[in-house]
Design a protein around this nucleic acid. Structure first.
Length: 463
RNA sequence: GGCGACGUAGCCAAGUGGUAAGGCAGAGGUCUGCAAAACCUUUAUCAUGGGUUCGAUUCCCAUCGUCGCCUCCA
């Protein structure tokens, strides 16, 4: 068995081979921090968190780098509107995004470089590109010369000729070729800027990723990831820059996640069809969003609406149903079967995840296992056997980043009163006063408290 | 106009050249004082039209439809 990854560069699933044995270098494009992040950004972070967790499960040491773009037009615009420094805006949303990553149970990257911390290296790289003839200065700007890079278009499957004929390219007479893109932008008044051989200015968007990737991970990396909206031009340009700079093949595997859809279109700021991570987490636990991501293919679009959220919530509840305690019976004999199934589900997990992180297929096997566990409990499995199987379930869902243990405090102010009501109701039930005990159950349900009567007594939980 | 992805049951969704996982919802049943939960049973010929093949949902072509990129974007 071996891991296969779909590579955007070749449009095929390829066997995963690292540059160095046992080690993976992975660069994932992070957000531009000019406003609150939405669940689409979260989706991307979740996808690559799952990739990273699985690689680590396989035993790889993963060097995971994600950047923050902290200087660009939108940040500057936003700062102007608010009357603050651009870096103040960037800093605020970086902090917020860090908090989101934590709340979403996303493992911290090894490094979080920022564009503004890499200006020296960026200037050096731009100068190098100019020196090598891949770039040319013009009125304080510096442009990349796409004509000079023969492989331009290899990631997105485009040809320069085709694109020239495209109707949306606006012609800038200062550029040699309409597709030449800015490596360095001359400073306008009031904008943050840094000195350079071409005058004061700031980096273009694409160069920062090439430079940060190289600085943190070296000339060549195993995996480069991001949303599929970055394939062109961003990642195409990164390849052009990096490979022109080093003369080496840049990233082996290019992975791209699909877009979060809301109301039939890509979730985005410009369309205005977005749900922020904050507003999502106010209403739902982080696992719900992760479940939505897991239940579909990472490369395809993911529809976000009330219905898909409900589905994810219920699926999560179903996984948790397998974690209930045993109801042992003396003559139970299914111990070996359950053990065999545990072993088998581990193998299936591995096999399915190896197929380009097929999380939806993997969930199918996990749900089968949930059924087996519940079945065993119904048949009277002992606590020890059941717990061994539950440990496997938690292990595998843990690799997917799900937290099945219910942390929600049943204590707290309301908790004590609910406990009291449950206790009274238990007495009533002992006295067979069904009408009153049902009344308590119904009224509590109206208050979002669900009671369940089990052989071990009554349990409750928030709806 | 160019490039790319996708179209599987009411919904979400996996998958295979030999008649299709799983979850949710629905129906019936077991259990329960009644419920809930759990368990059992049950629900599809895989967009359409051609082609290749002994045989295609799975391969090829066309058509229709949806989405993404070509401008900032996870």
């Amino acid at each position: 068995m071996s891991l296969k990854i779909y590579n955007t560069l070749t449009r095929k699933k390829e066997e995963f081979k690292t540059l160095q044995p046992g080690k993976v270098s992975m660069y994932v494009c992070g957000p531009t921090v000019y406003d609150k992040a939405h669940v689409g950004h979260a989706m991307s972070a979740l996808v690559f968190d799952i990739v990273r967790r699985y690689l680590e499960y396989l035993g790889y040491e993963v060097h995971h780098v994600t950047n923050y773009t902290d200087v660009d037009d939108k940040i500057i615009q936003r700062a102007a509107v608010e009357g603050v420094e651009p870096l103040t805006v960037a800093e605020r949303y970086i902090k917020e995004f860090d908090r989101h990553l934590h709340d979403l149970n996303i493992l911290p990257a090894s490094e979080y470089p920022r564009a503004t911390e890499q200006i020296d290296n960026i200037v050096k790289s731009v100068a190098e590109l100019v020196k090598k003839g891949y770039a040319y200065p013009k009125d304080g700007d510096v442009y990349y010369r796409v004509d000079k890079f023969p492989d331009y278009g290899k990631l997105s499957g485009r040809k320069l000729e085709d694109m020239e004929a495209g109707f949306r390219i606006e012609v800038d007479s200062r550029k040699e070729h309409p597709l030449d893109f800015a490596l360095w932008k001359a400073a306008k008044t009031g904008e943050p800027s840094w000195p350079s051989p071409w005058g004061n200015g700031r980096p273009g968007w694409h160069i920062e990723c090439s430079v940060m990737s190289q600085t943190c991970l070296g000339d060549q990396i195993d995996i480069h990831g991001g949303g599929n909206d970055l394939i062109f031009p961003h990642h195409e340009n990164e390849i052009a820059q990096s490979e022109a700079l080093t003369g080496k093949h840049f990233a082996t595997y290019w992975m791209h996640n699909g877009m979060m859809q809301l109301s039939g279109a890509k979730m985005s700021k410009s369309v205005g069809n977005l749900v922020t991570i904050d507003s999502f987490l106010e209403k739902y636990e982080a696992n719900v969003l992760r479940m939505m991501v897991l239940n579909s293919s990472y490369r395809g679009p993911l529809t976000f609406n009330e219905e898909t959220i409900q589905h994810a919530q219920r699926a999560l509840k179903r996984l948790r149903s397998a974690l209930k305690p045993a109801l042992p019976q003396e003559n139970w004999q299914g111990g070996k079967d359950l053990k065999d199934r545990s072993k088998q589900v581990r193998e299936l997990f591995r096999k399915t995840m190896d197929d380009d992180f097929n999380t939806a297929g993997t969930l199918g096997h996990i749900f089968d296992f949930v059924k087996d566990i519940n079945q065993a409990r119904d048949e009277g499995a002992d606590q020890e056997s059941l717990e061994a199987a539950q440990a496997v379930l938690k292990e595998l869902t843990g690799v997917l980043g799900l937290k099945l243990d219910q942390e929600q405090a049943q204590a707290g102010e309301a908790g004590e009163f609910i406990d009291l009501l449950v206790e009274i109701r238990t007495r009533l039930r002992e006295e067979k006063l069904w009408e009153l005990s049902d009344l308590i159950r119904d009224k509590l349900e109206e208050l979002d408290v669900i009671l369940e009567d089990t052989p071990q007594g009554t349990t409750w939980q928030w709806k």
